[in-house]
Amino acid sequence: MNIPAIEAALAAVEIPTTGRTLGSENAVQSVEARADGLHIALQFGFPVQHIGEALAARVQTALQDLAGTQPLHLSLTTIVATHKVQPGVATIKGVKNIIAVASGKGGVGKSTTTANLAAALARMGARVGVLDADLYGPSQPTMFGVAEGKPDQRDGKLVPVVAEGGVQVMSIGFLVDTDQAVVWRGPMLSQALQQLLFQSEWNNVDYLFIDLPPGTGDIQLTLSQKIPVTGSVVVTTPQDIALIDARKAVDMFQKVNIPIFGVLENMSVHICTHCGHSEAIFGSDGGKDLAAKLKVPLLGQLPLSLPVREAMDNGTAAALFEQQPAIADIYTAAAFQVALAVADKGKDFSSRFPKIVVE
């Protein structure tokens, strides 16, 4: 069996939905001819569980003339690396990459987007966490169906509550009475955010989504100065008023050197559940135009959807993907783009550097 020819054929196989090849991603780890067939090991820096069958079919097609009648044994593994963050900010134990989700304005579906991007990546096989940084209005416990959960304590640290799908969730909503207002000034908010992040025992999280509050105030400033952020996602509706505030969020990230992985346009169109008529209630293509202006990807355009709202209110984010495949496809495509953008960043090797002690 001509192993070099097989390796060359594998290198040319295109990874579904990406425009990338196994060769460009250095994904081929080993090719071995054994008594029971041809064993191929592929390794990726991003989750591929959702495209595993399609990728296997492409490999089969690419090798059909080279492998002959030999059975193919294909293994797919994902090892997500820790990637670079802002200069001078140390990474967090148990967390590889942090993705901030911001809008600049409330009411555009930022928390919903955070929950569903996290759920999508978890379904792809990644280890995912969500930190609810909207301390005045924590909603992630409700959206993940763990509002009654309480974090355990282990060695002086809080253990995030694990929701369906394995998503690790931490929120101030677990620690305070949800019926009482959080009446805190900026410094207290910033301290609370850092405690929730740094004093939680995250369990080997590949991607931690931070659901930011609206605006560009103390929480966002703390995020940029003290929290290692790999990149950000900006959520908006097509409405002009929402776009004004979304641009402020964009400007904030640019000023603190946090890359923007893309723009997600929410509530792009309303589709009547009775007649199917679609109407652009909040305008058309505002998020698309913003993404084009920033020269970043448009991650998706999501309709104003009753099933999404019901799933978030009922805490069934995971079930939404089973019941609404069209909606699931949009969130999955958006989450995959984010994972690819993270993988394209330079890796962080600071943990390998020796510590310098001045005596």
Rank of each mutant, 00 (worst) to 15 (best):
351 S>G: 00
281 I>K: 11
345 K>L: 15
178 T>L: 13
356 I>A: 13
7 E>A: 12
273 T>I: 02
137 G>W: 06
307 P>M: 06
303 P>K: 12
8 A>C: 03
140 Q>P: 08
141 P>K: 12
4 P>G: 09
184 W>A: 04
95 V>I: 15
94 G>T: 11
202 W>P: 01
242 A>M: 01
292 A>E: 15
169 V>I: 15
178 T>G: 11
122 A>I: 13
358 V>K: 14
7 E>G: 03
331 Y>M: 03
80 V>G: 01
279 E>P: 02
357 V>A: 14
345 K>S: 11
254 Q>H: 13
163 A>R: 03
309 R>P: 00
263 V>L: 08
155 D>F: 12
355 K>R: 14
95 V>S: 03
347 K>N: 08
190 S>T: 14
15 I>Y: 07
23 G>S: 06
211 D>R: 05
157 K>H: 10
352 R>F: 15
66 L>D: 07
222 T>I: 03
109 G>W: 10
8 A>T: 15
137 G>Q: 04
258 I>A: 01
18 T>E: 09
5 A>G: 03
310 E>I: 06
258 I>V: 15
192 A>Q: 05
349 F>V: 14
43 Q>W: 00
319 A>H: 06
124 M>S: 15
317 A>V: 15
38 L>K: 10
255 K>Y: 01
206 D>S: 05
1 M>R: 11
106 G>I: 07
107 G>V: 06
142 T>N: 10
227 I>V: 15
101 V>H: 03
340 L>T: 07
278 S>K: 15
192 A>S: 13
290 L>Y: 08
173 G>P: 08
307 P>C: 08
34 R>K: 13
163 A>E: 02
33 A>N: 11
301 Q>C: 06
246 A>Y: 04
32 E>P: 00
117 L>K: 13
94 G>S: 10
316 T>Y: 01
295 K>Y: 00
40 I>R: 07
163 A>L: 01
99 I>H: 08
299 L>S: 05
86 Q>E: 03
200 S>Q: 07
136 Y>A: 03
329 D>A: 15
88 G>Q: 13
279 E>K: 14
230 T>G: 14
133 A>E: 11
158 L>I: 02
106 G>Y: 04
209 F>D: 00
118 A>W: 04
231 G>E: 12
183 V>N: 05
69 T>R: 09
287 G>R: 12
160 P>S: 03
175 L>C: 08
106 G>K: 07
310 E>F: 00
119 A>G: 12
91 T>Y: 00
314 N>M: 02
38 L>T: 09
137 G>K: 09
133 A>Y: 09
30 S>F: 02
202 W>S: 01
317 A>C: 10
96 K>Y: 09
168 Q>Y: 09
66 L>Q: 07
11 A>T: 13
8 A>F: 05
112 T>D: 01
291 A>Q: 05
208 L>Y: 05
261 F>G: 01
195 Q>E: 11
351 S>N: 07
31 V>R: 05
80 V>Y: 01
212 L>P: 03
121 L>N: 06
309 R>M: 02
21 T>V: 09
264 L>A: 08
273 T>A: 13
71 P>T: 05
9 A>R: 06
137 G>T: 10
331 Y>D: 03
33 A>L: 11
82 T>W: 00
220 Q>M: 11
75 S>R: 10
61 T>D: 14
342 V>N: 09
